[in-house]
Design a protein around this nucleic acid. Structure first.
Lengths: 146, 146
DNA sequence: ATGTTTATCGATACAAGGTATCAAAACAGG
DNA sequence: CCTGTTTTGATACCTTGTATCGATAAACAT
């Protein structure tokens, strides 16, 4: 058992506090809104849910969560960005359901293997990559419309 | 030999004419500017090179080239979009030199193999993907700064 | 409790990359 | 040359953020 306390402290919040950032009411509100969001969400959705919090602050806070690796930012096929809670550990990739927006993570091992293979095919040294998998998730396949 | 004529008709232009779009002076200018661009370029760079052409028109024309598959749009690690001439055939991916902006294509076969492997790991049916490989190209490795 | 320091906040303006609108101009075909 | 359809440029607007900056609120030590 890793966590037995019922302090109800948001994991998001804890993560940025661990990075030395202050615990503020505003950040708690943002974290709460994120945690209450289903699947994935947009920054503007959070802004709309928290009219008392400035737009800039919402973006700033999302950025903090991103850099603490507790939030991820994905890009839909049309280029629209969405955020989702990032539960996984180190390096991984995301699959996004284009129907409901659900984001899930998968281990990157297979991908890493490909990159190594590509190292022979690509001219130059690979310094990074970006990858997104678009899916139609189980729920959306079985469930009616959506 | 596929093309022996020296009609000097831009491939870009021909491609969109094949899609039923008109041949216009403006589009020729945009195609010319693109073909004169080294490596990759931004939409705003084209706008700056062609002050006589409206910004909206530049974007519209780039979009036409994109949908005719003669142009590709890539995203740098920081999210900035760039365009590059797309010479390859059907499905492929791009590697972008983060140092000089050179974009090259590589066959997607290896990637496709991974996707099939991922189909087991990912919940749901894969409907698409996005992939970008960032490199430091040969020229930039050997050449001094850059 | 209170002060003091520093981080954070909200409002606002601005930036980048596009898209919608719409009257005017340019094509293409007869 | 006429005419119908595309295309164009100007302009306004949209989305997704980021910079600025005076006001506010944490954190910490008195």
């Amino acid at each position: 058992m890793v966590s037995t306390t019922s302090s109800s402290q948001s994991d998001l919040l804890l993560a940025i506090e661990d990075q030395g950032h202050r615990h503020t009411e505003t950040r708690r509100l943002v974290a709460e809104a994120i945690e209450a969001s289903p699947e994935s969400f947009t920054a503007e959705e959070i802004c709309a849910q928290l009219p008392a919090v400035g737009r800039a602050t919402v973006y700033r806070t999302l950025k903090l969560f991103l850099s603490a690796d507790v939030l991820c930012k994905v890009t839909l096929p049309d280029g629209a960005p969405r955020y989702a809670i990032d539960t996984g550990g180190r390096h991984h990739h995301h699959s996004i359901c284009t129907s409901c927006g659900a984001v899930s993570e998968f281990r990157a091992s297979t991908v890493e293997r490909v990159l190594r293979a590509l190292e022979r095919e690509v001219e130059g040294e690979i310094t990074g990559h970006r990858m997104e998998i678009y899916v139609r998730c189980g729920k959306c396949q079985s469930g009616a419309a959506n």
